[in-house]
Design a protein around this nucleic acid. Structure first.
Lengths: 155, 155
DNA sequence: TGGTATAACATGGTATTTTATGGGATTCAA
DNA sequence: TTGAATCCCATAAAATACCATGTTATACCA
């Protein structure tokens, strides 16, 4: 069992008429080695698809279970939003997954998808949107350089 | 053999004149692999049907056994309601279950049922009600963004 | 180091299977 | 024996697995 796994790099892959995309080989290797599966959902904060390992969501489910009792309403909203939107994506023998209409639409993806590593997660963008987003992030980071050093981040 | 079991995604299925609905294939797979059964009951907090694995209710029963003194009277009452209301729903060879009049009425479901994953549980909604509910939740979550981070994993 | 053989990958196309769903037959109970 | 529940069959559509090919990256050898 692998100790370290990180989604990295930025990869451009074609999306065909059926919505099929090759999951980057590195990403596949991670899911395979951890014998878990990829889960995708609409990002809550950006026009992109977000992906992670099913393990991560399972952990979240367990935390919710333990933190609240069976009937609790406090986390109820969240679980609806997160799990209601998430979906497992198993890849076939050639390494492709089939993204749903809902996800593609949210990310405005038509024929090309950009996979952007984010460590424990990754995102899938429309190329133009990603270009803009990357520029925006870069500018932002350059502006507030010092805050990069601060222990934990923003918002 | 799969190691993670989560009810996810949002699926729209038809309810025919006899009250039959296809249980989403993913949900069926979970019940099958765990050789347990699906249990449904009227949600206590919303006009929808709630479902889970019989295992989950068993766990709940055990918890109550072990910690009865900690349970408030109201929660105790809730368990009465749940167990009194819950019913097992076995699916036939084509993967359908037959919801009862009581459940359908509570959720105002007539010809279409929306299955919404919640991790260890799931809900079944009337399409219009779910649409409204989802919008409500989304607005709420966006407002209190910070609470989103709390339950999420920490690296 | 340069060049070639080999393997891995992305991707288009096609075949096969699964799934949802309608309809009818059969069984069971009141 | 009538209504309801269960089972079985049929079908269309969608999801999935499989095969083939060109391209790129990697390994290997002179």
């Amino acid at each position: 069992m692998r100790k370290i796994f990180l989604f990295m790099d930025t990869i451009f892959n074609k999306v065909d008429a059926k919505g099929r995309v090759s999951l980057p080989a590195d990403y596949r290797a991670i899911a395979k080695e951890l014998s878990t599966e990829i889960v995708c959902y609409r990002s809550l904060s950006a026009p992109c698809i977000e992906g992670c390992l099913e393990d991560s969501l399972d952990k979240l489910a367990t935390e919710i279970e333990n933190a609240t009792d069976f009937f609790s309403e406090t986390q109820d909203n969240l679980t609806n939003l997160i799990f209601g939107d998430a979906k497992r994506f198993a890849f076939d023998s050639t390494g492709r997954i089939m993204l749903t209409e809902k996800l593609l639409k949210h990310a405005q993806i038509t024929d090309t998808a950009v996979f952007v590593g984010k460590g424990r997660k990754f995102q899938i963008w429309n190329p133009q949107n990603w270009e803009k987003e990357e520029a925006r992030i870069r500018a932002e980071v350059m502006k507030n350089r010092p805050t990069l050093k601060a222990p934990k981040e923003q918002e």
